[in-house]
């Protein structure tokens, strides 16, 4: 496994080289990222414009919610976004090629691509976060910054794990694209808005079933002092635990899937 890990940077090197072949990508990509974020924030401001606050969350608080998610997500997007494409590799038999080499197939798969578009998101997120932080007149102590960093890391691991699990399901079903698009659909909604506004059952869904609420919402309730509005105020502190559990599940699902793998023959 260690050998395989040592090869990862070399895979990434070739992935970067591959990407650089498509220069026009870069500019269009940046443009796309700007539009995407602009649209998202516009929608938020439209709603806020009419309602002043959504479930008690004011504009800059929601911006911080969004920025926090985007920070984790952008790192995920750079290195792990192609987990979405795992079903493709399996379907087209490209995965077989990984298995026939003396290197861990997961590392080979992860090393197949790098998406530097995520970097644009990081810049956007950092800017949005700083604006929100100052507009909310926050002054975090070291412990709060530490928790924030931990929550970001947990958020990253949660997103990776969920994608890992969904991707690995294609070992059995051959396709995971529907699951992914659905998961993304919920993510997009849940990460940009305080999930309270979508009703009790929705909250149950994104807390217990697709735990994306732990990526930004719950930790942020603690950092912004909103935790007492929840049934379980300390829920945000569990983010790292949720992340680890999901990671473990991801690893088990991957292993099991790989073990039972039947490639699409003839």
């Amino acid at each position: 496994m260690l050998d395989s890990l040592r090869l990862y940077p070399k895979f990434i090197e070739i992935a970067i080289r591959s990407r650089m072949q498509y220069r026009s990508d870069f500019l269009v990509g940046i443009f796309g990222v700007i539009i995407l974020n602009f649209v998202n924030l516009s929608l938020i401001s439209i709603l806020i414009g009419r309602f002043q606050a959504l479930a008690g969350w004011r504009f800059w608080e929601i911006v911080m919610l969004y920025a926090m998610w985007l920070l984790s997500h952008s790192v995920y997007a750079v290195f792990f976004w192609h987990l979405v494409l795992l079903d493709e590799d399996i379907l087209h038999g490209r995965f077989d090629q990984y298995l026939v080499r003396p290197c861990n197939p997961l590392i080979q798969f992860l090393g197949r691509e790098i998406n530097y578009m995520g970097v644009a998101d990081i810049i956007f997120a950092t800017t949005a976060f700083s604006l929100a932080y100052s507009n909310l007149d926050l002054r975090w102590l070291f412990s709060q910054w530490a928790f924030f960093a931990l929550a970001l890391l947990a958020g990253l691991v949660i997103e990776i794990s969920i994608s890992w699990i969904i991707g690995s399901i294609s070992f059995w079903t051959g396709r995971s694209r529907a699951l992914f698009s659905i998961s993304i659909r919920f993510s997009v909604l849940s990460q940009q808005y305080p999930i309270d506004i979508f009703g009790y059952w929705y909250r149950v869904f994104v807390t217990g079933f697709l735990p994306i609420a732990f990526m930004n919402y719950y930790p942020l309730t603690i950092l912004l002092g909103k935790q007492n509005a929840l049934e379980i105020p300390r829920l945000g502190l569990f983010s790292p635990l949720v992340a680890l559990v999901l990671l473990l599940i991801g690893w088990l699902v991957w292993k099991k899937g790989l073990a039972g793998y039947t490639s699409s023959g003839n």
Partner: peptide, 16 residues
């Protein structure tokens, strides 16, 4: 210890 060539898919990196 083995080498494999899958006819319809290349094992090489496409863009480099």
């Amino acid at each position: 210890r083995i080498g494999v060539v899958f006819g319809q898919k290349t094992q090489l990196w496409w863009d480099v």
